[in-house]
Write a protein that binds this DNA or RNA. Structure first.
Lengths: 142, 142
DNA sequence: TATTGTACCCCTACTTCATAGGGTACATTT
DNA sequence: AAATGTACCCTATGAAGTAGGGGTACAATA
C-alpha cells in the first residue's frame, strides 16, 4: 500500500484517502479480497485522525469498493474494479447541472438557487414550508 | 401604499418588500400602470437602505410584477396580476427536491450533495474540474 | 487482553454565503 | 438643479457547512 496524503492540499483528507485507494484498486495494486489496514492503523501511519479514515472507509464501503467484516478487518470488495469506475459523484453533478442550467436560463439568481437548495436540504424528509412569507408584526410603514 | 416591514423579523427585508408589493397587487391595491414610490423614496420611508429596496425592485421587475422606466420612475407591470401568482421559487424548490430525493435514495451523503452543488454552481459557464483528484505533492505515506 | 469497526459526546478552526448598510458616481430627462 | 434607476467601491454581521481533533465506549472475536 502506497497512500500519499498531502496535508496542505486543497482536497479534504478523507477524499484523498478515497482517491488513493480507488487508484490502487484501478491500477491493480489492490485486488479483490486483499486486506486493508485497519482504521486506526492507517490513521497512525498517515498521522491523521481515526475519524478521517473511518469516514473514507465508510464512503468506500457504500460504493462497494471495500468490505468491512467487523472485528475481522476490512477487505477489497469482490467487484471493486467495476464499482471503482462507476462515479456516483459524476451522476449527481450531471443531474444538478441540468437543473441549475434550467434555473439560470429562467433568470433565477444564483443566490436564489442556493437558498432554495439549502431550503430543500434542510427539510430532510418530513414537512415543507415556503420561505417567502414574511410574518407581519410590522414596524415601519410606507 | 401600505408596506409593512418588520426589521426584527426572520424574513430578509428585501423579501418582505417583495411580498408586500405582491400582496398589494394581488389584493387590487395596486393596479397595472400605477406608479410605485422611487427606490430612494421607499427606502427612506421604511428607514432601510436604498440597495435593499433596489434589490427588491430588481427581482420584481425580473418577474414582470413591476416595470422600471429609467428616470421616469417605476410602475406596475401590465400583466402583474398573473405573474404575481407564478412562483418561480416554488418551481426551483420542486425541481431540486426531485433530484435530491433521488440522490438520497441512492445513498448519496448530504455532504456529498452539497459539495457537488457548490461544485456545479462555481463553474459559472466556463470550464469545469472534478473535485476528487488530490494533487500529489504528498507528505505522509502509508 | 488486544483488536476490529462503530457510535457517541465534546471541542476548535476555517470557509463561504446572504444580508444589510454607507458612500460615490453616472447618464438621462424633466 | 432635481430626480430617476443603476453601478461600483467599501464595511460588518450572522448563519451554515466542512474538516479535523480528543476522548470514551461498545459487542464481537481471536
Amino acid at each position: 500500500m502506497e497512500i500519499q496524503i498531502d496535508i496542505d492540499g486543497k482536497a479534504p483528507l478523507f477524499a484523498q484517502v478515497i482517491a488513493q485507494i480507488k487508484k490502487a484498486v484501478s491500477e491493480g495494486e489492490l485486488s479483490a479480497g486483499d486486506p486493508l489496514p485497519s482504521i486506526r492503523q492507517l490513521a497512525s501511519d498517515l498521522e491523521i485522525n481515526n475519524k478521517t479514515v473511518a469516514k473514507a472507509y465508510n464512503l468506500l464501503e457504500r460504493d462497494n469498493i471495500i468490505q468491512t467484516k467487523g472485528y475481522r478487518g476490512t477487505y477489497v470488495h469482490p467487484s471493486a474494479i467495476e464499482n471503482c469506475t462507476a462515479d456516483l459523484n459524476a451522476w449527481v453533478i450531471a443531474e444538478l447541472g441540468k437543473s441549475i442550467n434550467a434555473f439560470r436560463d429562467a433568470d433565477v439568481t444564483d443566490s436564489e438557487i442556493r437558498i432554495a437548495f439549502t431550503d430543500v436540504m434542510n427539510r430532510h424528509s418530513s414537512n415543507g414550508q415556503s420561505s417567502s412569507e414574511p410574518n407581519s408584526s410590522g414596524q415601519n410603514t410606507a
